[in-house]
Computed example of a mutant assay.
Amino acid sequence: MTTPLADEFESHRPRLFGLAYRLLGSAQEAEDAVQDAYLRLSGADRAGIEHLGAWLAKTVTNLCLNRLASARVRREEYVGTWLPEPVVTSDGTLGPLESAEVREQVSMAMLVLLERLTPTERAVFVLREAFAYGHREIAGVLDLSEANCRQLYRRAVGRVAAPESRFEPAPERREELVASFVTAAREGDLAGLEKLLAADVTWWSDGGGKVTAALRPIEGRDKVVRFLVGISQRFATRVDLAVVEVNGENGMAAWVGDTLLGVLGFEVRDGRIAQVRAVMNPDKLEYVRRQLTRP
């Protein structure tokens, strides 16, 4: 039996999870941060909370800032490439993603770029870009001056700036490319895969030292195709591949029986696949596995 407090908190949970995930790049840690916020609310003096949504956003943000400080140390010691935990977004887990700009904020590429920022810069950037907070509101969340928040935001924008795509394909074309990749991979059609890849494609693998994965990025179409040849020979017909929406973009899930082997995110440029990010660390697949096997 739920309580009025629990019911009220649950109405805020999706937004809080979306905030925590963008700040942390980890779905499981985001869940923990949101749950910690509930525990703090349970012990708080409700009479002193004027606006619950604002209080919870501030609480979750500060919990995440504490986690980011320790996460930076762990990521410096991480085995191989660090990638964010993938999240299936077709079920609204990260809220409505109704525009290209909103989808970009939760993309694997953006979450990787956010690793360049200090925890405070990241908080300012996420609150401003993803949740449309004004600088005065951000200052209230972070207990900083409005001028300081403006400066942090300008610095963050400069640090995550990336070269714009020369051509952003229509969603239908992106879907077609990813579906073609999955079909070609499923059929072992390496010539077909080669046609889908940009000449300077880069393949990133995150195994975290828990499973076999390339420790460094694989750069260039020829090297990526040779890498895919090795994968196809290793797993042959045992892998079941499926298209899924991951972090606002079409991606791919690879299963061996009931085991989720990995989740791939694709970045498209000039009509071809330019970046592939493969998350294979089983610790990072727990949340998305629960999403994909949910009844």
Rank of each mutant, 00 (worst) to 15 (best):
V87N: 08
M110C: 00
V102E: 12
E115C: 07
E85G: 02
E115T: 14
E85W: 08
S90I: 03
P86L: 04
L94M: 00
E85F: 03
P86Y: 04
E85N: 06
A109K: 14
L114V: 07
E104G: 04
D91F: 10
E115V: 08
E104D: 12
E101R: 12
P84D: 02
T89G: 02
L117A: 13
L114N: 13
L83K: 00
T120G: 04
P84W: 00
L111P: 01
G92M: 02
L113Q: 15
V102K: 14
T93W: 10
V88W: 09
E101V: 11
M108V: 12
L97V: 02
T93R: 15
T89Q: 05
D91R: 13
Q105L: 14
S99K: 09
T120Y: 12
E85C: 02
S107V: 07
R103F: 05
E101I: 08
L111I: 00
V102P: 00
T93I: 13
R116A: 13
V106A: 04
E104T: 09
G92K: 09
T93G: 03
L97W: 03
S99V: 08
L113T: 04
R103T: 06
Q105E: 13
E121V: 14
E115G: 15
S90F: 07
S99M: 07
Q105H: 07
Q105V: 01
T93F: 11
L114R: 15
P84G: 02
P86I: 05
V88C: 10
L111T: 01
V87D: 08
V87G: 04
T118F: 12
V102L: 09
L113P: 00
P86C: 06
P96L: 11
D91N: 12
G92T: 03
P96D: 10
L83H: 00
V88I: 10
E101L: 10
V88H: 10
R116H: 14
L117S: 10
M108I: 10
L117W: 15
L83G: 09
P86H: 06
S99E: 02
L83T: 06
L114G: 07
A109N: 11
L94H: 02
T89S: 11
R103H: 07
P119N: 13
R116V: 01
L83M: 03
L113N: 13
L117H: 10
E104I: 00
P84S: 06
E85D: 07
L97P: 00
L94R: 05
R103D: 09
T89P: 02
G95I: 05
L94F: 01
M110V: 01
T120H: 13
L83Y: 02
R116D: 02
V112F: 01
V87I: 10
E98V: 03
V87H: 06
E104L: 08
M108K: 01
L117G: 14
S107Y: 09
E104C: 00
G95A: 03
G95V: 04
T120W: 12
D91W: 08
E121D: 07
V88R: 15
A109W: 11
V102A: 13
L111V: 00
P84Q: 05
E121M: 11
Q105T: 14
L97F: 03
V112A: 09
G95T: 05
T93K: 14
V106M: 00
P84R: 06
